[in-house]
Nucleic acid binder design. Structure first.
Lengths: 234, 234
DNA sequence: CGGCTCCTTGATCAAGGTCAAGACATGTGG
DNA sequence: CCACATGTCTTGACCTTGATCAAGGAGCCG
């Protein structure tokens, strides 16, 4: 199968590209989609909230979702990661049979397929490759989480910001003007690296002054990736 | 089966208590143990090092192991978690087929069963319940990691220390004198909550002055759990 | 007893948080 | 199209937290 066919943007199955569902055959994919519910979330609307009982998993067709936890003491939120087209979210809570330990909110209009827990479970039970993929996925996420923990604990703010910009670049790529293809407000970026909005802004201004990045409103362009990598001490 | 039989300390199978191997029947447990290698690690010796290629997983029979990452820039280490009797470690890297992203070191004499990757894989393939347990386990760990990330990002040092003391209490319990049953040096505790040794010591001294904890050398006793919980803002 | 290692405390300093105010952009109703 | 309101971004001033450096103390062991 050629890549252009496999990733045909207009077909239903395109949502399955590059994810754990690749281990399903076409029939299985169609069955799963036929049992799933297509949902459209407008900008800033919530897919699910911390503490709620999960009733299924979300397969993202298009858009970007932020996954975060809210500190019930201060009300401040901390963004754990972003999910985009092809990603599956909510499965952690479904599988460990706990209430959601995070909230998820669309940061731009987002289309998802909602797969009810029972259907998802059936596929795990009946398809060994599928469950293997799921183990692998959760282990990979676990590795990323561990890295994140260490970064927060050991790196300076400047280093963390450099690293997150590189991560955004790797994850979301560039638009036609070479700006990173994700639009976040300053508060959200601050909530990823675990700092105050003002502190983040100061660091971004510094990086701009040094000619390492460029800022145009909410859009960010990386001018000197090498330097950024050096700062993030990768 | 009565509890006293199930947790018989002298039997081989006692190491399987309360973990994912419970889904194996007695024959399967014996097979896995027969293919595994009993190893004894002395205090401070390494089970594995970050960057190495994993060749199997470690099932801990007795002792305590710290799992940490080292910042190759500053040389500082950050402890991600502790593993104790019944815990299985190293499976994340084995399953995602990556080099170890953490190091593991015994903080007291530790006995493990080392299970080679191939044997471990066979059990995943052939035992569906076992792989389901593994998914559940990694999802649970992922939930804990996410919590850890948020704590580091949003909580003050004092809150994090209160929380980690409660976690130690819940995980390791108390000895005959009501001290928490884990002996760590100050540096290790500091490396769990992500701070400098001196800062940790100051906070512990404060908690002692306030009558919330007691300190006897390396041993810690919780005197006022309620207050500690309030500080950790649970 | 001397030489370790680890713990503790004090003094100082820097990173980043907080508060306040102004700049800029965007949207709305008239 | 303007006037106004609202929300976000940015900068400055100040303050708090916790890191760093330095020195002394306690426990342990040959």
């Amino acid at each position: 199968m050629k890549k252009s066919e496999k990733y045909n943007e207009t077909s239903f199955s395109s949502v399955f590209s590059e994810n754990i569902f690749n281990f399903l055959n076409e029939d299985q994919k169609n069955i799963m989609l036929s049992y799933s519910e297509k949902r459209i979330y407008s900008k800033y609307s919530a897919l699910y909230e911390e503490g709620a009982k999960p009733s299924g998993v979300f397969l993202i067709k298009s858009g970007i979702v932020k996954i975060f936890k809210t500190n019930n003491h201060t009300g401040k939120e901390h963004i754990i990661r972003f999910a985009k087209s092809g990603d599956i979210i909510g499965f952690r809570s479904v599988i460990s049979n706990e209430t959601f330990c995070t909230s998820a909110k669309a940061i731009e209009e987002t289309v998802v397929f909602f797969i009810p827990s029972s259907i998802f479970y059936d596929f795990i039970k009946e398809n060994h490759n599928f469950s293997m993929q799921l183990i692998t996925l959760s282990c990979k996420e676990l590795g990323e989480s561990n890295k994140f923990i260490t970064d927060l604990a050991l790196k300076s703010l400047r280093e963390r910001i450099a690293e997150i910009l590189i991560l955004f670049y790797n994850t979301f790529g560039l638009d036609e003007n070479n700006f990173i293809r994700i639009t976040l407000n300053r508060e959200d970026i601050a909530n990823v690296v675990g700092t105050a909005t003002e502190s983040l802004i100061r660091q971004l201004s510094d990086l701009k002054k040094e000619g390492i990045i460029d800022l145009k409103g909410k859009k960010i362009k990386i001018l000197d990736l090498k330097k950024l990598q050096k700062i993030s001490s990768i």
